[in-house]
């Protein structure tokens, strides 16, 4: 029962992330949708797979290594993309920009 709820939750969160990439106005807000929804959705699906699979506990623990790697790498890549876009010259649509105050 719990694994079906987790799987549906992961799918729904992934769907909202894809919708956010289409609807948000600029690069940085789209990165918000991509990072958070991908990490949360992948976590939900991995937990559901751990519960579904019938195998000894050591084999299930390999999924936890995968979850740890996703949780470390996903925010790092989004940080690299955001910084690279700012350095390249993509202007954010924001109310206040303290990064531009310090760098120009």
């Amino acid at each position: 029962m719990i694994e079906i709820i987790l799987m549906l939750f992961g799918g729904a969160v992934m769907l909202f992330g894809a919708l956010g990439i289409l609807r948000f106005p600029d690069v940085y807000t789209r990165l918000h949708a991509a990072t958070k929804c991908d990490t949360g959705g992948a976590m939900g699906i991995i937990l559901a797979l751990i519960l579904i699979m019938d195998a000894p506990a050591v084999v299930r623990a390999k999924f936890l290594v995968l979850a740890f790697l996703i949780a470390m790498i996903n925010p790092m890549v989004s940080h690299a993309i955001a910084r690279g876009a700012y350095r390249y010259g993509v202007k954010p649509k924001v109310v206040v920009d303290m990064y531009a105050w310090d760098n120009s």
Binding site: V13, Y28, T29, A33, K36, G40, M43, V95, M98
Partner: peptide
């Protein structure tokens, strides 16, 4: 926090009530 942020992004996508800014 991850659960809360997923729900918040879903809310933002549906209602588009965003007010972005860069702070230090």
């Amino acid at each position: 926090r991850l659960l809360e942020s997923n729900l918040k992004v879903a809310k933002n996508v549906i209602f588009m009530d965003i007010n972005p800014g860069i702070v230090k």
